[in-house]
Design a protein around this nucleic acid. Structure first.
Lengths: 193, 193, 193, 193
DNA sequence: CATGAATGAGACTTCATTCAT
DNA sequence: TATGAATGAAGTCTCATTCAT
């Protein structure tokens, strides 16, 4: 499996650094290769093309979110508590890696539509997990049974995303993790019974 | 004033069509000129450069949102009702011009960071108006005085944006205007007393 | 006669100023028109095309050199004295109009080959007059009869030109008129008996 | 070192041929690449931009003049003899490569001012060597101690340049090398005791 | 005579990808 | 596996000139 070879991760990590520091349109394959300490051609032994690098960057990192979220779902707690954990986790991961935050919130969005559609497909797994929290909350009477799950999911994701992007655009001036309780309360208000 | 000359609007409208139909990166100046029925060089009598066309597209169209929102604010109605109108207006404008919807929700986001920052500056006016609805609601006791206005604004905008983008990505399969009551109720729940 | 109309000279003078201040490649027709206080199209009522403006600039100004030189030739003086006057006159004209000096020594040389060949044709008249000074000097025994007139002319013109260009490139730091005696002595040495 | 790679010289030589045959303004990078037998992009592996090609052309070729002149200075001969050799060498190099002659005397002068200033800086080395011949002649009593070295240098260079340009403009109709004795005698007269 | 809005051809440079070593 | 030199397609913008008013 290519993904397990050291150079694969080496290139992914190099890509995040290069994109965060130079911006999407200034992140040439040669720059990524240099940062990764390999030759340009070597990139193509591990990735089909440039787009494949970017998708893989997203894939690898979304996995972290999804992994964490899976664990959160499995803990023994209320749906509301799980929602809290989810928000906190989201903020935590990005707060601990500003390069990653810049890349996912700003730079990767400049990619072409095709890439963004593929990224959305990856995101879907994350959103499905979010759905399961919502369903659980409705079933156990924590959340209002009348809410439209799809809309609620879009609200939650839209709010987290907008909050994070604003934080990145403000150059991490404040600690985004501190926003968790407020964001949680706001969203909970919207969906609770 | 250049903006009042017919060719100015002609080019703006052509740009929206070309970008919506070809995608951001396949919208060459020559294509826009052809669609507008002018020579390539004529574009540069009305716009400084290609980026200037895109900013102007956004500026011109955001004006519509902002204008409408200003009128909404001035009507004699509750803050809740104004919020409803705002959401409905947002959906209305984009539902009535799918080209515009595609451009603002998908294509323009592929622009480089510099352009996006300028677009954000334009958006600010819109967000300021949204703030005033929130303030009014808090003052007259409709909305919870404990809510953080900035967060509430990010939630509202994030939700509307995410909802609209999902609708565009689903190729306008359903009527987004119909979502207004549900979206409104959800958001209102989050902020009402 | 077009040349006698006020706008003709107006445009010629504007061209010199614009070229001197902006450089050859930054001297668009529209800039010259603006400086002359006429519309772009008006230029084409007086000049066939842009090249025609530049040739006319040269023609008009070379006329001054040639006129002066003709008078110098006609005065009652030795050939050596006439050579002195010629050098002095050349330096005088350019020293009294730095814009003109910049244009003839630096900017006009960037024109294309075709234009430069036409300029050379105009120069010929000037060189013919120089030839007549040389012939006179040889005939009356002032200059060495063995010198090759064509070569001597090239030396004299080459020296004056190189001297002037150096002065312009040094941004008129010193007074070029003061060089006249030294230049004269040097050239005279080369051709005297 | 890029300059030592075969393609570097290949491109320089191609540039001289293309410029001589098509003129400065008709020498597109693609033409030079084609003549050199490489892809357009390859040019940019060896040169920063188009201007860099032109400067390098001049640099490479001026080196020949300067190298030869250095050897001339070192030979055991009178300053007058060295001056002769210098003139002859100058004529020899250009007579043996008409393409080069056209490029240096006519085409390269159409370049913009910035490029010409850089070319002048390269020329300076050549002029410094010429100065040392003059100084030597003055010290050993061959040349008049009263001459102004800078002026004498400008005369010598101006004369050689004007002579060569005239020859090129006359399309090499006569053998410029044959002019050496006459030019030498003329210039020597000007500066000898 | 004068205007000035409109035209449209034309070239430098970048960079993802390949392939011989 | 790994290299890195070479490829070549593709697009923005300028500006001399025209012509309807």
């Amino acid at each position: 499996m290519k993904k397990d070879k050291p150079k694969y991760k080496q290139i992914i990590d190099a890509a995040i650094i290069v994109i965060a520091e130079n911006g999407y349109h200034q992140s040439q394959v040669s720059k990524i290769a240099k940062q990764a300490g390999v030759a340009d051609g070597t990139i193509y032994l591990y990735f089909k093309n440039k787009e494949d690098i970017l998708i893989s960057v997203f894939e690898e990192k979304m996995e972290v979110f999804a992994e964490n979220l899976k664990q959160i779902i499995e803990i023994d707690a209320s749906a509301s508590e799980k929602l809290f954990q989810m928000i906190e986790n989201h903020f935590n991961v990005l707060a601990s890696d500003h390069h990653l935050a810049t890349v996912t919130q700003l730079e990767l969005r400049q990619s072409n539509l095709a890439l963004r559609l593929r990224i959305n497909a990856i995101l879907k797994n994350y959103l499905v997990l979010l759905d399961s929290i919502l369903k659980e909350g409705i079933e156990n009477g924590e959340f209002n049974e009348k809410i439209d799950i799809r809309l609620a999911r879009q609200m939650i994701f839209g709010t987290i995303d907008e909050t994070t992007t604003t934080w990145v655009m403000n150059e991490y001036k404040y600690n985004i993790i501190d926003l968790t309780p407020k964001v949680h309360r706001l969203l909970l208000n919207a969906i609770k019974v």
